[in-house]
């Protein structure tokens, strides 16, 4: 039974992927990709990765899909122009042959994977008590491989610096994204008033649950960022100026607190990013609480794009 369901999911996934790649125009391709992202979350559930499924649904499918949909709306007829410079029939045939060859080689590699299966799970389980958290994935992210998580937050900040730097000079320091004008009595404004309180509660719940159960800061940050975007899109509040000092403080707070806790570990526990015995859980909570606003701000601002209006006064 379960294999039948998996097979069905696989077939649908492959069909969607092909459809997305060969679709007639960019809008259809992106629409296909959004559905594909949701289906992918289902794949993660079947692969026993509830945390990954949540991240995939929130970021891989949700935010990425929204970002791509936003871009489709601004292509302004560039599609027809580029269509003429597409790969030649020969190049397409070559691409197909090589893509099939890569797939076949990978499949062969997968089929002859060595036995016994290599896994780090037996190392993770006995090390978990030292971290004080119950969810092994949180343990990996914030104890064993804390550096990766610190770098991940840094990647997001650098990506934001990059996105901002694409601004036209005259808009520097201004507000990102368009100013949404919406009917204050309209249905969207109504939703933007009703939904965020619920969304904030759910976001904080997902965040808090992450220590011991599936969930965590990224999934929570996506929900909170979405609430903020909703309020913006309903025209109830405007995006902040990118030169706003408080905004920038919120962006850098997470990584800086993370590094500070790491240095505390160096001083109190003998190694950078180590947690003093017994303090692991509280310190992990401190890091996560500091990262949450950073992630909310950065995710939402990445969606907003570069500053484009209201430059320096």
């Amino acid at each position: 039974m379960s294999t039948v369901v998996s097979a069905a999911v696989v077939l649908l996934l492959l069909w969607l992927a092909v459809w997305t790649v060969v679709a007639r125009d960019a809008f259809l391709a992106v629409a296909g990709f959004v559905v594909y992202g949701l289906l992918l979350a289902l794949v993660w559930v079947r692969l026993a990765g509830i945390d990954v499924a949540l991240t995939e649904a929130a970021i891989g499918g949700g935010l990425t899909g929204a970002l791509l949909l936003g871009a489709v709306g601004r292509l302004r007829g560039t599609e027809a122009a580029t269509a003429t410079e597409g790969a030649s029939a020969g190049a397409r045939a070559g691409a197909a042959v090589l893509a099939v060859a890569v797939t076949a080689a990978l499949m062969l590699g997968v089929l002859v994977l060595p036995e016994p299966v290599p896994t780090l799970a037996p190392l993770v389980v006995p090390a978990m008590p030292a971290t004080g958290v119950g969810n092994p994935i949180t343990g990996v992210l914030l104890a064993f491989r804390a550096l990766d998580t610190l770098l991940e937050a840094t990647v997001l900040v650098i990506a934001l610096i990059g996105v901002w730097s694409f601004a036209p000079d005259r808009a520097w320091g201004g507000r990102p994204g368009p100013r949404y004008q919406t009917d204050p009595d309209g249905v969207l404004a109504w939703l933007a008033r009703v939904l965020p309180p619920i969304g904030v509660v759910i976001g904080i719940y997902v965040f808090w649950a992450g220590a011991d159960h599936p969930g965590g800061k990224f999934q929570a940050a996506t929900i909170l960022a979405a609430m903020w975007m909703l309020v913006q899109m309903a025209g109830l509040s405007d995006a902040p100026r990118t030169s706003h000092r408080g905004l920038r403080a919120g962006i850098v707070a997470g990584p800086l607190v993370f590094i500070a806790v790491g240095v505390l570990g160096l001083w109190a526990a003998g190694s950078f990013l180590a947690y003093p015995p017994g303090l692991a859980k509280p310190l992990i909570v401190v890091i996560e609480v500091a990262l949450l606003p950073t992630l909310v701000l950065v995710l939402a601002l990445l969606m907003n794009g570069p500053p484009r209006r209201g430059g320096p006064a």
Binding site: V187, L188, W190, L191, V194, L195, I198
Partner: peptide, 8 residues
């Protein structure tokens, strides 16, 4: 929540 969002 689904009711709310799908209606809007």
């Amino acid at each position: 929540l689904v009711l709310l969002s799908s209606a809007v």
